[in-house]
């Protein structure tokens, strides 16, 4: 997209154009600061963290922010999924916090533009008083084509009779690890040849071991007119909690 835009600008007569091909991912990887827009902070599914001392956060903080003093940050973020967008603000140490957090494996860490003062100046909402939200909670929103674990479980238990589960793992994996109930094993590479085994009038939920193959199978089935969703979850994850049978 940067090259497309550069081409357009060139055509419009701009003479001094550079393209930063490595882009935003390389910039954050180099531990340089990136910023979220205030709108994203207010409406996005983010974990907003005030890393200033609690006494200061009690006086005034960005609405919806968790108060986590810098020294507690690592502990308190420990259970938060690494793909949660984290937005930090604080004083001088905030860039250190960004680097620490990125090194903890968080993929999306950015800052509030201008910090707390920038937020205030922009007239954005703040809150004051005691802080009650101590445990950081973040739940990923389902992406395109994803089935929720709850819906998937209903199909696996047989409670939802309008759904069929397809296990896209290999026969060897199924033989070794077993499979869920109400499930047909169609290894991903056999899918195009065996599609006729699947009903068009039912929901189809595809899973594999982590979701990678399920995603591919999803695309293939969607293209062939099936009512399909896929499970993006490591099925050994406790969250799945579906009964396993031996075929």
């Amino acid at each position: 997209m940067s090259t497309t835009n550069a081409g357009l600008a060139k055509k419009l007569g701009y003479k001094n154009i550079l393209v930063y091909l490595d882009g935003e991912p390389a910039w954050s990887k180099a531990n340089l600061p990136t910023y979220s827009t205030n709108n994203f902070i207010k409406t996005g599914n983010v974990v907003l963290v005030d890393i200033r001392p609690s006494a200061i956060a009690v006086q005034a903080r960005i609405k919806g922010a968790y108060s986590v003093p810098y020294e507690d940050l690592e502990d308190r973020l420990d259970d938060v999924p690494r793909n949660a967008p984290i937005v930090l603000y604080g004083d001088d140490e905030v860039m250190d916090a960004v680097i620490d957090t990125r090194e903890e494996g968080f993929n999306f860490v950015s800052l509030v533009e201008g910090g707390f003062n920038g937020w205030l100046l922009a007239g954005e909402p703040v809150e004051t008083g005691p802080i009650f939200n101590t445990e950081i909670k973040w739940v990923r929103k389902l992406g395109k084509g994803e089935v929720s674990v709850a819906d998937f479980r209903k199909a696996a238990t047989g409670e939802d009779k309008d759904a069929v589960i397809v296990d896209a793992r290999t026969k060897e994996e199924v033989a070794e690890l077993g499979m869920f109930k109400n499930t047909i094993n169609i290894p991903l590479d056999e899918l195009s040849a065996r599609m006729n085994e699947l009903p068009k009038d039912k929901k189809i939920y595809v899973h594999c071991s982590t979701g990678a193959r399920a995603d591919m199978a999803y695309n293939e089935l969607v293209n062939n007119g099936f009512n399909v969703k896929f499970l993006l979850l490591n099925i050994s994850d406790a969250e799945c909690d579906c009964e396993i049978i031996r075929p």
């Binding site: 997209m1 940067s2 090259t3 835009n5 550069a6 357009l8 600008a9 419009l12 007569g13 701009y14 003479k15 001094n16 154009i17 550079l18 393209v19 930063y20 091909l21 490595d22 882009g23 935003e24 991912p25 390389a26 910039w27």
Partner: peptide, 20 residues
Amino acid sequence: QAAALPLNKDKLIVFYCGGP
């Protein structure tokens, strides 16, 4: 088109996106 860009066509413009 140009309305989204600076008036001065000699000004340095740097474009970036999500990387290669």
